[in-house]
């Protein structure tokens, strides 16, 4: 009887700690969800005379994938992106973050290029404006240019099928 209170406190503590163990501390909630995507105008990776500007993509749902040739996890998610590009569901744009142009171009030649185009963000300023902190990251932007979802870390086929694609279909289906 007299141990009831300490036991209750202990159990509550255990519950809190157990919940804590299942959370991923790397996953920081993005303040951008539901907010307009930050603007930028970056030279394209393949052709520096062309500019990539998300404002010109308004009216379409698109994905922006932040990647770099130095990023190991990007290799891991690359097949998922190639597969997505092949299925022609949604345009995929790249943000080549803090990279060197030649290495990045070589990387795409070697592993395949899933992107409609990639913006070349050499100093990472655009990345900072988009709140990038762990490459790879993937943003879902709706027709109004509002960020609807952010995936930090590599995309897996499961995340793509269960989270991204249903959301994209829903966004594409909704009238503007």
């Amino acid at each position: 009887m007299r141990y009831r209170l300490p036991l209750a406190v202990f159990l509550i503590l255990i519950i809190f700690l157990a919940i804590g163990l299942t959370l991923d501390p790397r996953e920081v909630p993005s303040p951008f969800i539901g907010k307009p995507a930050p603007e930028f105008a970056l030279p394209e990776l393949a052709d520096s005379t062309k500019t990539l500007n998300p404002r010109e993509l308004k009216g379409r749902v698109f994905l922006l994938n932040v990647w770099a040739s130095w990023c190991v996890s990007c290799r891991q998610e690359h097949p998922v992106l190639l597969d997505l590009a092949k299925r022609n569901i949604v345009p995929l744009y790249g943000l080549n973050y803090k990279d060197e142009r030649t290495s990045a171009q070589r990387w795409l030649e070697q592993f395949g290029d899933p992107y409609v185009a990639s913006g070349f963000d050499a100093d990472g300023r655009v990345g900072i404006n988009w709140g990038v902190y762990g490459v790879p990251e993937t943003f879902v932007v709706d027709r109004e240019g509002v960020i609807r979802y952010k995936q930090t870390g590599p995309l897996t086929p499961e995340i793509l099928e269960n989270k991204l694609l249903p959301l994209i279909r829903q966004l594409q289906g909704s009238p503007t």
């Binding site: 909630p29 303040p31 951008f32 404006n129």
Partner: peptide, 8 residues
């Protein structure tokens, strides 16, 4: 910083 990365 909080605009971009949140209160974190």
């Amino acid at each position: 910083l909080t605009d971009r990365y949140g209160d974190f």
